[in-house]
Each structure stands twice: as C-alpha cells, then as structure tokens.
Write a protein that binds this DNA or RNA. Structure first.
Length: 208
DNA sequence: AGCCAGGACTGAG
DNA sequence: CTCAGTCATGGC
C-alpha cells in the first residue's frame, strides 16, 4: 500500500487524534514526555508527569531548581530515572538558553542539529520535540513507524532513520499537520492492532 | 516468568 | 557504520 493511501485509510477509520497527549498545554510537558517515553510504556510516563504536575514542577526553571535525587524519585515510574533526570535538566538548559538569548533558529534542520547535540536527544526525540512542541514540519520515525512500514508499506524497517524519514516526507508533502496526524494514527493502530507479535483483526480488515 | 514498551549512549570491531 | 551491552519501571 502507498504511503499516502495508508494515511487516508487510517484517518477515515480513526479520525483526528489531537496529539501530543498533554495535560497542562505547556510546551515543556511535551518535551518532558518526549524524553521520558524513550523505550518506555506511555502509561508509565503519565505517572511520572502526574508526579511532576502534583508538586508543581513543570517548567525548565523549576526542573533546574530541583535536586537530582528528588527529580529522580518523581520520574522513577518512567524507568531509566538516573539517566532521564540528567536528560531533563539538559533539555531545560537548552530551552532556557534559547529563550534567553533569542537564538531560536528559524531553520528547522539547524535547530534539529542543536537538539541532537544534547545528551539524551537522538533523532526520534529531536523530531518529536520539533513536530509536537514547536509545530515544525518534520516527520517522526519510531519503532511503530518501522513496524507499520515493514508490514503494510513494503519498506525496509531496518533502514537508516533519515532514509525512512525522507520516504515519508517526499510522499506526503510539507504539511506539518499531516505529519502530526499520521504519526499519531500509526501509534493508535499499533497499540490496538498492529502489535509486535502479530497483526490483529483490524489490520487484516483495513489492509486485506 | 518473561516479554514488551512511542530510545540513546558507549565501546568494539 | 553496525552491533551488543546497558539502563529500569510497570502491565500483561
């Protein structure tokens, strides 16, 4: 199935997904979620985010003001808490520097490289932040995208990140709303039917 | 019990 | 550049 057709099929079936999931509506919560969800179930990320909100620590400034040990306990449910607490502070500094010095680049790929230069930020995390926190037109490749690409789009799921990303972006045009919706729909499909072990009935129904 | 979850870093070859 | 080892929790 072509890249574009899968999008149409999923959108017709599910409708808009209203991503990224966010309780406070703050940009920083999206960035926090992007870091905490690295190789981690979203339900666990939600617990960590709820902990942070409960003690009113949901901003770059407040995260930087909290001792490492305390931050680690708050995000413990999300796993890898020692690393991730450091990553969150790394991102908090990044955001604070961008706002303080007014050097937020208008070039998306330049900004992407600046994100990638931070410890804890790989391609997927950088692109999730660009797309969902900053509304930049960048398509996100994750484990789900690779699985769906492999099973339903005839793509090589093991291909390099940037190669897969270019395939999707070349096929979809430059509308960031489409990138936003498509990735959210892929996640929805994988959670409900396109599971790692095997496809469920919905996959067979939609793609037979 | 073991597998899985919206990865990234490090060191080795 | 590719690959294994490492990091950790919670649901099923």
């Amino acid at each position: 199935m072509p890249v574009q057709k899968l999008y149409n099929t999923l959108f017709e079936h599910y409708g808009p997904q209203h991503w990224w999931p966010c309780q406070t509506g703050k940009r920083w919560e999206i960035i926090t979620g992007a870091v905490l969800t690295q190789n981690t179930a979203w339900t666990n990320v939600e617990k960590a985010i709820s902990n942070l909100i409960a003690v009113d620590i949901m901003s770059p400034e407040k995260v930087l003001a909290v001792p490492d040990s305390e931050l680690q306990e708050l995000i413990r449910p999300a796993g890898f808490f020692t690393q991730k607490s450091a990553y969150l502070k790394e991102m908090a500094q990044f955001i604070r520097e961008q706002e303080k010095h007014f050097i937020m680049s208008d070039d998306v790929w330049d900004l992407r490289n600046q994100l990638l230069a931070r410890k804890g930020v790989g391609r997927e995390t950088a692109d999730s932040i660009l797309l969902y926190a900053f509304d930049k037109p960048v398509f996100v490749i994750d484990a789900y995208t690779r699985r769906v690409g492999e099973r339903h789009l005839g793509l090589n799921g093991k291909a390099a990140y940037d190669v897969l990303q270019k395939i999707f972006m070349d096929a979809l045009g430059t509308d960031r709303k489409v990138y936003n919706e498509y990735h959210a729909l892929i996640v929805r499909l994988c959670k409900e039917s396109c599971k790692k072990s095997q496809c469920g009935t919905l996959c067979k129904e939609l793609f037979s």
